[in-house]
Design a protein around this nucleic acid. Structure first.
Lengths: 132, 132
DNA sequence: CAGAATCCCTTCAGATACTG
DNA sequence: CAGTATCTGAAGGGATTCTG
């Protein structure tokens, strides 16, 4: 049939909206930063270069797979620099690029909000749960 | 055996780290905000109250399930207020609480960073992909 | 209108084993 | 040391159906 069904209309609207979201700079930044390990890695690198194994130790909960994967995307996005020293065994150091460092500011501000207001969130949650 | 295996040691370290992360205010805020729909809802409510259906229309890509679910957690966390008008049919309005409004600031700053620096990220990504 | 409940599929992430 | 590759269980989220 020529006309679209309601379901097809919705599909279309969703596809368009998803495309819009994929473009939206804010959305994309959030998708980056919201990754569980991204901010931890960036904060870990705040004071300078770290080796792969040092990062793994400092971010205790991360699996080797996730650490590698996250570092790759951060490198791809130009937030983290990877420096390989061809020795035996190999040595790899990671550090923040200037672009990556510039993210420390916004992250800091989020942190400030969190420290100021998370108690309020906790209180609200407790009250909500108490009322059922 | 009495001593712990290396695997058990790692499990323990991970459990402790996860517990630490669950407490960390910054981490918890990120977990909230990082939700795909949270910021969209908060921004949609920036100019005042909206009905459920109005929200659904404005945030074109959201499913009814996700909208409901997200609104519930936002209400529970004290970021959004839910006002029910007992008419036929029922009318429900959502609005930002003062706490929710206070999140607009940090979100705005993230947005500013995104608009300033996402082109750099795109450039870095393009170069990375070009080099293979 | 606003939402609850169900089913189902895709994606994510951890554990494990192997390599230069 | 710093990865890569594969398998698998758990979780997220969409479509659909039903209700006050």
């Amino acid at each position: 049939m020529a006309t679209k069904t309601a379901a097809q209309q919705r599909q279309l609207a969703k596809a368009e909206f998803d495309a819009y979201l994929a473009q939206c700079p804010s959305r994309r930044l959030l998708d980056r930063v919201s990754d569980k390990w991204v901010t931890l890695i960036i904060c870990a690198l705040r004071d300078g270069e770290l080796r792969f194994s040092e990062l793994a130790r400092q971010i205790a909960g991360v699996s080797q797979k996730m650490l590698t994967q996250t570092l790759r995307t951060l490198e791809r996005d130009g937030l983290v620099a990877r420096r390989v020293t061809a020795s035996v065994p190999v040595r790899v150091d990671y550090s923040l690029t200037p672009l990556g460092s510039s993210l420390l500011g916004p992250i800091e501000l989020m942190k400030d909000w969190a420290e100021q207001h998370m108690p309020d969130v906790d209180a609200a949650r407790a009250e909500y749960d108490a009322r059922g």
